[in-house]
C-alpha cells in the first residue's frame, strides 16, 4: 500500500468526523438561514444587515476580539522573550501556563472578584481613601471581557511561541550584532522571520475564537450592544424559533468573515516563507 493511501486511511476517521459534523453543521446553518417561505431567499440576510442591533454587536465584537488578540500576542511575545532570555532552565516558568487549566467562565469570576465595583481592588482603593473606582465589569467598553481574555490567552501565546524561541539559532543574533545591527533590527531580521508566522497564526486562532465565543461576554458584557454570539443565542431561542433564520444568517456571516480572514492570513504566511525556505529562484 502506498504511503499516501495509508496516510489518508489513518486520517480518515478525523476527516469523516469533520465532514459529518463540522461541514454538515455549517451547511445546515446555511440552509436554515435561506429557507424562509415566501419572503425571498436572502430575506434573513437583508433583515440582518439592515438592522442596527447587528451592526452594534458587530462593532463591539470586532473591537473586543481584535484588541484582546493583539494585546495577548504582544504581551505573550514580550513574556516569551523575557522568559527565554532569563529562565531557560527554570521549570517553574510553567507557572505562566497555569491559567490554561482554568475554564473561561471561572476566569471570568476571578475578574469579578478583583475588578467589579464590589471587588477586591475597589476595596483596596476605598480603604486607601480613593473614591470612584471605575466600572470595569459589565461595562460598555467590555474591559472586564478583555482583561479575562488576556489572563486566559497570554499563557496560550507563550505555549505556542516558546518552542520557536527555543529552536532559534541565536548565533544569528550575534552575527547581526557584529554587522552593527541595533536591537530593533535584530528583532526584525533574526527573530521575526521565524516567530512572525506563528504570531500571526496565534493571533488568528484567538481572533476567530473570541469572535465566536459566548461564555465570557454573556457573563461580563452588557445587554446592549452585546457581542454577536450572545445576540445569536438569544435569537436562536426566541419564542417559536421565529428568529432562527436571522441567528443562522448571522452565524453564516461570522463564519464567512472568520474563514476569509483565516484564508488570507494563512496564504500570506505560506507565500512569504515558501520562497526562502525552499529556494527556487534558480535551479
Amino acid at each position: 500500500m502506498s504511503s499516501s493511501v495509508k496516510s489518508w486511511l489513518l486520517a480518515l476517521p478525523v476527516l469523516l468526523f469533520m465532514a459529518v459534523f463540522a461541514a454538515q453543521g455549517l451547511y445546515r446553518a446555511w440552509l436554515e438561514s435561506v429557507q424562509v417561505d415566501g419572503a425571498g431567499l436572502f430575506s434573513a440576510y437583508t433583515e440582518l444587515l439592515t438592522g442596527r442591533t447587528f451592526w452594534a454587536s458587530f462593532g463591539i465584537s470586532v473591537y473586543v476580539s481584535f484588541i484582546s488578540a493583539v494585546l495577548s500576542v504582544v504581551i505573550g511575545l514580550w513574556l516569551v522573550r523575557l522568559l527565554h532570555r532569563y529562565f531557560l532552565r527554570d521549570d517553574w516558568k510553567l507557572a505562566v501556563w497555569f491559567p490554561m487549566l482554568i475554564p473561561h467562565f471561572a476566569a471570568a469570576y476571578l475578574t469579578v472578584l478583583f475588578f467589579s465595583p464590589g471587588g477586591w481592588f475597589a476595596s483596596v482603593s476605598a480603604s486607601a481613601g480613593l473614591d470612584g473606582f471605575p466600572i470595569l465589569v459589565n461595562d460598555p467598553l467590555y474591559i472586564g471581557v478583555i482583561l479575562t481574555y488576556l489572563w486566559k490567552e497570554i499563557p496560550f501565546v507563550v505555549l505556542m511561541l516558546l518552542p520557536v524561541y527555543q529552536e532559534l539559532d541565536w548565533r544569528m543574533e550575534e552575527a547581526a550584532r557584529s554587522l552593527g545591527a541595533g536591537a530593533w533590527t535584530r528583532f526584525k531580521t533574526v527573530e521575526l522571520p521565524w516567530s512572525g508566522p506563528v504570531l500571526l497564526e496565534v493571533w488568528l486562532i484567538l481572533f476567530v475564537f473570541m469572535l465566536g465565543a459566548y461564555e465570557i461576554p454573556v457573563l461580563l458584557g452588557v445587554t446592549y450592544p452585546s457581542m454577536l454570539p450572545v445576540l445569536a443565542f438569544e435569537w436562536f431561542y426566541q419564542a417559536g424559533w421565529s428568529q432562527r433564520p436571522l441567528a443562522q444568517a448571522m452565524m453564516v456571516v461570522l463564519t464567512a468573515i472568520s474563514a476569509f480572514t483565516a484564508f488570507l492570513l494563512l496564504y500570506i504566511i505560506q507565500r512569504s516563507r515558501r520562497r526562502w525556505l525552499r529556494g527556487g529562484m534558480r535551479a
Binding site: 476527516l15 469533520m18 454538515q24 445569536a232 452565524m251
Partner: peptide, 15 residues
C-alpha cells in the same frame, strides 16, 4: 482538521 479552529464552533452547533 484545523477547520473548527478557523470557524466559529457556535455556528456548527446551531446548524
Amino acid at each position: 482538521i484545523m477547520l473548527p479552529i478557523f470557524v466559529p464552533v457556535l455556528a456548527v452547533a446551531m446548524g
